[in-house]
Design a protein around this nucleic acid. Sequence first.
DNA 1: TCTGGGGTCCTAGGACCC
DNA 2: TCTGGGGTCCTAGGACCC
Length: 435
Amino acid sequence: MSAEKRPGRAIAVVECNDFFVSCERVFRRGLAGRPVVVLSNNDGCVVSRSAEAKRLGIRMGVPLFEVRERVRRHGVVVCSSNYALYGDFSQRIAGLLCEAAPAVEVYSIDESFLDLTGLPAGELEAWCGDLSSRIRRWTGIPVLVGVGPTKTLAKLANRWAKKSSPAAGVFDLASHPDRTEPALRRTPLGGVWGIGHRWERMLGGCGIRTALELRDASDGWIRKRMGVTGLRTVLELRGLACHEIESQPAPRQTVCHSRTFGRAVRDGRQLHAAVASFAARAADKLRSAGQVAGAVQVFVASDRFRKEAPQHSAAAVSRFREPTSDSREAVRAAVGVLAAIRREGIAYRQAGVLLLELSAERERAPELFAAADSTSGALMRAVDRIRRRFGRDSLGWGFDRERDEGWRMRQERLSPRYTTRWRDLPAAVLRPSRN
DNA sequence: TCTGGGGTCCTAGGACCC
DNA sequence: TCTGGGGTCCTAGGACCC
């Protein structure tokens, strides 16, 4: 355990407020002030809500069909998720953060950690306020900033920025340690970073219900019940840093592309086509990260919500003869695995392809007796180049042509890709002035 | 009718070795 | 026949995150 208490350590976490909804609002001014929700893939669950939608009692993660009546009654605007748009906003914001702070960890699509150690305590809040308004002005996205001596306390501060002073948008525990205890006392366990549903229930059963009670629990007991992961959280609540800022992201260990289908798929050819396209996409991701994979895993699952239908889920792995990022090899191996695990007569609702045992392409050791396919790398580079220039759909594989679209996901309310596709670019119309 | 996708880390247990 | 300690590697499952 490398816990460390250093004087004056200041970690900020910058989190976009209701990020997906905020992105939708940037180009659709009519959405301001209205209840808005964004859905997961397949238009399944609510994954982002505006403040107005939250006030209507629409919970995070709820399936759309359960709140359909409320949506209709209150005129809630419902959007399919548009990851091309959100990803682009995310990159722009990350760019601004990297200009502003020396060490930045882009933690997720809507949140980053900044190391602000060294900024005079008296200036922290104003500095964060400036940053927040700069992001708002240049991207249109509102952000909230929490500051603390550890990542866990910064996250807790962020929660308070949201709850207590969303207008100011900054809550600082690093230069105001006296605020920590009251904040911990008023934070339920579920609001602590690192405490999920299971642990919340377990701890609640033992009489621990607030972040303060968790902070003051005994080390030995926490270690026994929650392992080192739980102990780290507790130490961080005490101001001892266990999680550093990782400004150089570690290379991925797995790459996954999976989908729940728009409807259940019983037909072998369709499932084959779906898995082939997932494998090709996973290999694309691999190449864009400059990695190769040693093995591929395929999984399939029937609809777990339809208890009356025959259920089957399975997964299996196939190893490549030599690490590769060639889409054709990934597809070949994946459909082979699929053929071995698929059961006739089962209606599958979900499938996915994982690439495992990743390593950097340049570190790859050539196999002594491999019949090296020297065209593979060149072909893949050419494919990637053409797609970058002419769009992802400009070039496909043979199996794409036979593709039956039956498994495609539902996206009935997709907004345009305003910032990443030329023909979706918003137009500004200038009218001559009348006077 | 309608229920997401993509990751990480840790732990326990078994196989195997010396 | 009975029997110790310590190590590694692998896998499955469980917890968490957004």
